[in-house]
Amino acid sequence: MNNRTKIETKNLTKIYEREEEKFIGVYDINLTINEGEFVGILGHSGAGKTTLLSLMGGLIKPTKGSVYINNVDIFKLDDNELSHFRNKNIGFIFQYSSLIPNFTVMENILLPIVFSKEKKNLREYETRAKYFLERLGLKGYEDKYAYELSGGEQRRVAIARAFINKPEIILADEPTADLDEDTELKVLKFFREIQRKENLTFVLVTHSTEIVDLCLCETVYYMKKGRIYDKKIIA
């Protein structure tokens, strides 16, 4: 582990058990992601991409192995510590629809601030949220309720929310799945821009090689049946 290492997984394995049957989620994954690196994880459905991303973010516990973020073994943290760690360091873009329908767009974006343990200047974050909304083509949507939005609009609000808390790491799971081509390009451009500006460590999971190319990922891991079978360093 060098001093630029942001995320490191060691023998990371997740086995799911359903009705006495076992399924491999991910198996023996060892990878290192450096600070400020834009990483793509590419694979077909069922390859284990979401499981890997969820393990990196501590959303699920591994059957074996460990995940180090900033040299901290995140699975050694208790629920409180891990939640705080996640809130402070990681911005998630979930694959599944993840807005609270009866909250406005602004309130949904500010949710990570609600659970932050540090004192925050809310005005500053509101301005940041407005900037993200404008960049994502949702200017003036602040007071709309989440249930009033289309799938694509909800997706973009969830993207804005992932960046709000100034995290060091972004874990994005098929972030442009519900978007049309133009909006997709706009969002990917936004990712690249903010990633560079804030020196974010960005892990993007997708099944599309095109997205990996458009994002100008520096490193791409290829997954199949829960294993990484190839790694490509582009830049």
């Binding site: 939640s83 705080h84 996640r86 809130n87 402070k88 979930f94 993840s98 659970f115 929310r161």
Partner: peptide, 12 residues
């Protein structure tokens, strides 16, 4: 799930 994913602890 959403709240926990965004950093809410079980306590929160």
């Amino acid at each position: 799930g959403i709240l926990k994913g965004l950093g809410a602890s079980n306590k929160d």
